[in-house]
C-alpha cells in the first residue's frame, strides 16, 4: 500500500518549473483517487452530504451585494438562498469551513512536497498579463456555469457522480464536451 514516506517525499530536482510539467513527484494517480474517494465517502457517512467548493464564493458575493444594495437581495431568490434566514452569519456554514480546511490541507501538502512557490501557471509562450486575463475570464464563466448547474466540479461531478445523480452525470459529460471543444482555441496558453 501507500507508504507514508512516499506521500511526503521531497524531490528537489523535479519541482514544478515554469512551462514544464513534472510528474515524478506526484504519487500514483489511482492511489490518490482511492484516497480522494475515501475522503468523499467519509463525508457522506459522517455528514450525509458531499463536498462543495463554489458555495463559499456565492456566499461572499451574496453578502457583498446585501451590504451594498440590500434592496437587490430582497427580491432575489438566488442571493437569499445564500444569505439564509438571517438567524446566523452566512459564513458560519459547512461549506465555508470545508474550503478553509482545504486551503490549509493544500498548503500543508504543498509545503511538505516542496511545491509551495509564488508562481504563475502557464505555458512558456504565454505572457503573465494575458494569463491573468484568461484566468479571470475562465473564472467568470466557471462561476456563472456553476450557478446555472447548481454546483461545481466538487458538488456536481464528484458528489453527484458518486450518488449516480442524473443531473451530476449530465453535468459532467457537458463539462468534458465544453472543455475539449474549447481546448484547441486556447492551446497557446498551456503548451
Amino acid at each position: 500500500m501507500l507508504k507514508f514516506k512516499e506521500w511526503f517525499s521531497h524531490h528537489h530536482e523535479d519541482n514544478a518549473m515554469e512551462g514544464h510539467i513534472t510528474q515524478k513527484h506526484y504519487t500514483n494517480p489511482y492511489l490518490i483517487g482511492l484516497l480522494l474517494g475515501i475522503v468523499l465517502l467519509s463525508t457522506f457517512l459522517i455528514m450525509g452530504r458531499g463536498l462543495g467548493a463554489s458555495g463559499v464564493l456565492s456566499t461572499a458575493v451574496s453578502v457583498a451585494v446585501d451590504k451594498v444594495a440590500p434592496s437587490q437581495t430582497e427580491n432575489n431568490d438566488f442571493y437569499k438562498g445564500y444569505l439564509g434566514d438571517g438567524t446566523k452569519n452566512p459564513f458560519k456554514d459547512w461549506l465555508t469551513f470545508n474550503i478553509l480546511g482545504a486551503v490549509l490541507g493544500g498548503f500543508i501538502s504543498g509545503a511538505i512536497s516542496g511545491r509551495n512557490k509564488l508562481m504563475v501557471e502557464k505555458g512558456p509562450r504565454f505572457s503573465k498579463g494575458k494569463r491573468f486575463l484568461y484566468a479571470f475570464i475562465g473564472g467568470s464563466l466557471m462561476g456563472f456555469g456553476a450557478k446555472m448547474a447548481r454546483g461545481c466540479t466538487s458538488g456536481q461531478a464528484l458528489t453527484g457522480g458518486a450518488m449516480l445523480s442524473v443531473g451530476g452525470w449530465a453535468f459532467m459529460i457537458m463539462v468534458f464536451v465544453g472543455a475539449y471543444g474549447m481546448a484547441y482555441f486556447v492551446r497557446r496558453q498551456w503548451t
Binding site: 475570464i137 475562465g138 456555469g145 448547474a149 461545481c152 466540479t153 466538487s154 465544453g178 481546448a183
Partner: peptide, 22 residues
Amino acid sequence: PQLLGGLILGVGFVIGGYCPGT
C-alpha cells in the same frame, strides 16, 4: 440548466485552468 451550466463551466475550465475547489 445543468447541461448548459456544465458546458459553460467546461469552457471556463480550460480557459481559466481551475475549478472552484482546485
